[in-house]
Design a protein around this nucleic acid. Structure first.
Lengths: 186, 186
DNA sequence: CCATTTTGTCAACATGTGTTGACTTTATGA
DNA sequence: TCATAAAGTCAACACATGTTGACAAAATGG
């Protein structure tokens, strides 16, 4: 009863690698099996199928910092640093790339991203945002972070890839900070 | 020599609809043919294949406004309005949704997006940005716009979908404006 | 009106894919 | 040790998909 756990883990790791590199559709069960050095049939045996494996591989925890204990003026930078770091060194087992890569063309993945926003982002940000526009601001902040991740790690827009991580954190942090403190009127 | 142009157009229209709705991979040649009311073989006859048709369907012109003739303090809002409008009412034949929907899981589509950035975004923005960080800023602005489009129209993040277009333009416009005039130091 | 080109249809092929079930090998424990 | 279960392998199926080529229908133009 322990050998199976080992291969299970191997499969998930291989799946995360390929899903995050090529997306859900262009990743085949056989590819994952090859990467993991096992038989494709094991995937369906242990996980039930490709989709179930994907859900498992995309199960992530953002582990956002406790923003309420941070100096109000540093929240933007802190969030930016944390989020960017997750991407640079595959935090949360690299599940975020897995999800974002597939969410644009896979409704299931999109739904899971919406879930993460509602369950992990909103609860953390709400306390530090103005009551009457907390959701709006939280959404805009997510927009910023996902936009950067998309352009830097998925689309690989050259000028964005070229920006050093530290510098990028400052830029994104400032943008987020504006959304936390500033209130543009219409 | 004119009937064919008609069906060609029909095919491209159907292709744009399905590509933008379901992405490249999950859109089948047969689906497009059915939507267009023609035979799948015609697609390969007129366009050479699925990929070639996609390239045609994703061929877009951003038609960015001439920012150098706009009051410097209104550039952010103008850009935001223009870009958001393109999404709301399928500007440029809705080619942008086509591209963004597929770019995350299709290297070809990603490459075309990079091209659009280099050829249509940078040239327009460079003149109004500080010389020493024009590329960086142009990239960050694109990040903002793509992030919003992704969350609102692709991922359909509820709080972002709920924001009225006018209000969203103000928010995004302000964020962009900060990138045009402001200069965070590290 | 008829020969020729254009336009469209049909069936089939080749291939890749997720999944299945029968089988073999390996570990377990009494 | 040996019966039993767990873990892994293998070949095949069923199906969807992009593409092809032979053929039919329709427009064209002399």
């Amino acid at each position: 009863m322990k050998k199976s756990d080992k291969t299970r883990a191997t499969i998930v790791t291989a799946a995360r690698l390929l899903f995050s590199r090529n997306g859900f559709d262009q990743t085949t069960v056989r590819d994952i099996a090859a990467e993991a050095g096992i038989d494709p049939a094991l995937i369906v045996r242990y996980f039930g199928g490709k989709e179930a494996l994907f859900i498992q591989a995309a199960d992530i925890a953002l582990e956002l910092p406790d923003v309420s204990s941070i100096d109000r003026l540093d929240i933007g930078l802190s969030l930016a640093k944390h989020f960017l770091k997750m991407w640079e060194d595959g935090g949360s087992h690299g599940g975020l790339p897995v999800l974002l890569r597939s969410a644009a063309s896979n409704e299931g993945a999109a739904e899971r991203l919406r879930e993460i926003f509602a369950r992990q982002v909103v609860p953390v940000l709400r306390p530090i945002l103005p009551e009457d526009c907390a959701l709006e601001r939280a959404a805009m902040i997510s927009t910023q972070l996902l936009g950067v991740a998309l352009c830097r790690h998925i689309l690989k827009l050259p000028p964005l890839v070229a920006i050093p991580a530290d510098r990028l954190a400052v830029l994104v942090g400032a943008a987020i900070q504006n959304l936390i403190i500033d209130t543009p009127r219409d």
